[in-house]
Design a protein around this nucleic acid. Structure first.
Length: 796
RNA sequence: GCCGAAGUGGUGGAAUGGCAGACACGCCGGUUUCAAAAACCGGUACCCGCAAGGGUGUGAGGGUUCGACUCCCUCCUUCGGCACCA
């Protein structure tokens, strides 16, 4: 009988759906397990194979846990707001309100064809007012708590997209969407105070079971540095700098202010005023890309003013230079050219004095920035730099001139977007009352219909053109007021979606607290590491904030997070321009979902991803055909499995399970192949082998597994059958072949009973002619026996 | 530069202190075919050798151990994150 995957897959998908097999009873579940996959953005291009790879990794884990007896909840939804949709709409002229439902329908079809164990009854869509009502609600909660605030700030602006971007969306100084170099603009923006949680976000990483690569990216992004703030007297008053090396204070021979520093203009002497102003103007005109390029020649200008070094009492010049950034620390530094590369380069360029205050252990050429012994530092001479660091700050602290201080690289999260396709930020501006939040009862603030959503370069959202939307009444004084016209960042929508899955239809609450208590935090989450510092940081922040607000009962949203690798084609990242995009539809059609799933999981460990190859998928197709043939063409007999067949069966159960535990499904599948290769040689198959094989295969090839399991005859779906339990004793045969080494070198193998004792093993090993021969020359010093593994004779 | 991950056949990878290369792709040979494709069977780390056999081998070099792909140290390379961040 041929392997008719189309008929088999259609048959089982229909039966599963009829049985509502993938819709757990959230309230009644006894053994809840929340198995989450990343929130897909439903693009017009359809489901990307990389997305599918990630989802199948999640699904295989979910099916495994289901067989292990858990009530697995595996939800899905659509992250359909955002610039990506909007840009696509602007390019093709299709309104996102029209396009989005079509894209969602197509995604739904594709996801269903891949047989993911999804609970479709709880799907969410971020563009649904009943979803973004709660996005806006969270905004209100944060606002009440002081965690959402407005400020006029220099923000990253993409001139092509005509909107501001988060820092994370403009890495390297270019817009992540269109790669246009970004600019700085001063705009009134809404921010979430993620920096209030900087330390908690950092320390929280230590105890959580997340992929190391993700935690490392987050640590770097938070960028903690410990040091001190030190006060320098200047003609314009005290000037605070931040330094991580207060031990080098005696070597501070000048100071530098960022061009944007408020004191820069004030400090400049009459002769230098023009030069300083011009320098600041030039710095402001520079794009972020130019400014942040690290290998530029140092430039700067002297303010003419002098500051007093608090430890030496010496007067030192104050310069303005763009190598000091206004956004970090205090925007001003003390320069120690002897022990800081950048200060060194600057001092050389402008002829400023260099004083060494740290003696390295071994003399090194150039500028030394390591630890060492204090010199030229008054009473601190002779101390280690590490010790001196503490004492200098402590001593200055008594005089009120310094204090220990920690700074973070992390910036507050700018959520304002001057675009159309997002949830309106629920706030109004009243001439009398200022900014007023929309009351909870008036949510959602609906995104109005608007045929022309093009940005107009005014720096305002297209919504600002819609007077019917803008004009409103102040919730406080009932006077006329104007609505906020910015919409919120797409990352905000996706920072809480996993909460809504619990209660997607609840119109009264964001979710049912009883269900949250039962199902949260999420047990298992898999996704690409491109979200390490965006999505995953925002979710952690929001979870912590919602806990403080009293909405959630935990700090860490995801108990276990694992990254999945990337799927490439011919070694290259897939892209439309390269024409190497793999369409899941094509392969589901040609081979079926079971083959595509099994192939993707066979490529390697989930963390590594892999390179998609038509040849290799064909090999996997042959494997499933073979499995189908073995179990449908050979007679199934009721008799116990014994001997080597039993050993292989138990070893297979063991190794398949080990693969599941490590997300190395490739090992599980390889073991099934090995087992199948052996079964193919037998004339009959036992019912037990059929039952075990089907259950082990179920995650990868769920349709075929059910087709085979049906023959077992216990009237269950394979997912409802328990995970096969293996016996460690039976996973080893009665006799084992062990290695025989002499001085660590393999000299042969010998078969002995698995339970053989040392003496028996040694005598069997010595019986090998080759071993006896090699051993003859020298006296035996030692002999090692590792049960079931090897014997090693150590001689002469 | 700092932080993190990883280096194993022609390729993807397996083995995390005990027989390196499981399993698969590819390649070679065979069966089948008018032929090709497909399918099936066998072989396939490298070097020497007709063979039996011997030797070498997990990025490089040291170390620990009876025994190291695995643990430790130094270095190299690749990938990811951060980066004029004081």
């Amino acid at each position: 009988m041929a392997y008719d995957f189309k008929a088999i897959e259609a048959k089982w998908q229909e039966r599963w759906e009829k049985a509502r097999l993938h819709t757990p009873d959230l309230a009644g579940a006894r053994n809840p397990y929340y198995n989450l996959m990343m929130f897909p953005y439903p693009s017009a291009e359809g489901l990307h194979i990389g997305n599918l790879y990630s989802f199948i990794s999640v699904d295989c884990h979910g099916r495994y846990m289901r067989q292990k007896g858990f009530d697995v909840f595996e939800p899905i939804g659509f992250d359909a707001f955002g610039m990506h949709s909007e840009n696509h709409a602007l390019k093709t002229g299709q309104h996102p309100r029209v396009l989005t439902p079509k894209c969602i329908a197509n995604f739904t079809r594709q996801l269903k064809s891949a047989a993911l164990m999804l609970d479709w009854t709880r799907a969410v869509d971020t563009t649904d007012p009943e979803y973004y009502r709660w996005t806006q609600w969270i905004f209100l909660k944060l606002y009440e708590k002081g965690l959402a605030y407005e400020k006029e700030a220099p923000v990253t602006w993409c001139p092509a997209c005509q909107t501001v971007l988060a820092d994370e969306q403009a890495e390297g100084g270019v817009c992540e969407r269109c790669e246009t170099p970004v600019e700085k603009r001063n705009l009134r923006q809404w921010f979430f105070k993620i920096t209030a949680y900087a330390e908690k976000l950092l320390s929280g990483l230590d105890g959580i079971d997340w992929s190391e690569i993700t935690k490392s990216a987050q640590r770097n992004w938070i960028g903690k540095s410990e040091g001190a703030e030190v006060l320098f007297e200047t003609p314009a008053g005290p000037l605070t700098v931040f330094t991580t090396r207060p031990d080098t204070l005696f070597g501070a021979t000048y100071m530098v202010l960022a061009p944007e520093h408020p004191l820069a203009g004030k400090l400049a002497t009459p002769e230098q005023k023009t030069a300083v102003a011009e320098y600041a103007k030039r710095a402001a005109a520079m794009s972020a890309l130019e400014r942040e390029k690290g290998d530029r020649k140092k430039t700067g200008v002297d303010t003419g003013a002098l500051a007093v070094n608090p430890v030496t009492g010496q007067k030192i010049p104050i310069w303005v230079a763009d190598y000091v950034l206004s956004g970090y620390g205090t925007g001003a530094i003390m320069a120690v050219p002897a022990h800081d590369e950048r200060d060194h380069e600057f001092a050389k360029a402008f002829g400023l004095p260099i004083v060494e205050v740290i003696q390295p252990e071994k003399n090194v050429p150039g500028c030394y920035s390591g630890e060492g012994t204090m010199i030229h530092s008054g009473s601190y001479d002779g101390l280690s730099s590490i010790e001196a660091r503490k004492r200098i700050v402590a001593d200055l602290e008594k005089k009120g001139l310094a204090k220990f201080r920690v700074h973070y690289r992390l910036r507050d999260w700018c959520i304002s977007r001057q675009r159309y396709w997002g949830p309106p930020i629920p706030a109004v501006r009243c001439a009398k009352c200022g900014t007023v939040a929309v009351p909870e009862k008036d949510l959602p603030v609906r995104l109005p219909e608007m045929p022309d959503i093009r940005p107009d370069g005014s720096g305002k959202s297209p919504l600002a053109r819609l007077q019917a939307f803008v004009k409103t009444v102040c919730p406080k004084c009932k006077g006329t007021a104007e609505r906020e016209t910015d919409v919120s960042d797409n990352f905000f929508d996706s920072a809480w979606y996993f909460l809504r899955y619990l209660s997607p239809a609840d119109t009264e609450r964001i979710f049912d607290p009883a269900l949250a208590q039962k199902w949260l935090p999420v047990d298992h989450y898999i996704g690409g590491n491109e979200h390490a510092v965006l999505h995953l940081m925002y979710v952690r922040f929001l979870t912590m904030a919602l806990k403080e607000i009293g909405v959630l009962h935990f700090d860490n949203p995801f108990k276990r997070f694992r990254v999945n690798g990337m799927i490439t084609r011919d070694g290259a990242k897939m892209s439309k321009s390269k024409g190497n995009v793999v369409s899941p539809d094509e392969y589901v059609d040609k081979y079926g979902a079971d083959v595509l799933r099994t192939y993707l999981m066979f490529m390697g460990p989930v963390a590594d991803g892999g390179d998609f190859s038509d040849r290799s998928i064909h090999g996997v197709a042959k494997f499933l055909e073979r499995v189908h043939r073995i179990f449908t063409e050979k007679p199934i007999v009721d008799r116990p499995v014994v001997g080597d067949a039993r050993t292989l069966m138990h070893r297979s159960m063991k190794r398949v399970e080990e693969g599941f535990e490590r997300l190395s499904y490739n090992v599980s599948i390889a073991q099934l192949m090995e087992w199948a290769n052996d079964l193919a040689d037998w004339t009959k198959i036992t019912r037990e082998e059929l039952s075990v094989f089907a259950r082990l295969l179920a995650s990868f090839a769920p349709h075929l597994a059910d087709e085979l399991y049906e023959k077992v005859g216990d009237a269950k779906f394979v997912l409802q059958a328990p995970w096969p339990a293996w016996d460690p004793k039976l996973a080893v045969g009665d006799t084992v072949e062990i290695a025989v080494q002499v001085n660590g070198k393999l000299r042969g193998t010998v078969s002995i009973p698995a339970e053989a004792d040392e003496a028996a093993a040694f005598s069997a090993a010595r019986g090998l002619p080759k071993v006896a021969e090699v051993l003859a020359g020298a006296p035996l010093k030692k002999q090692v026996y590792v049960k079931g593994r090897l014997v090693n004779f150590v001689s002469g």
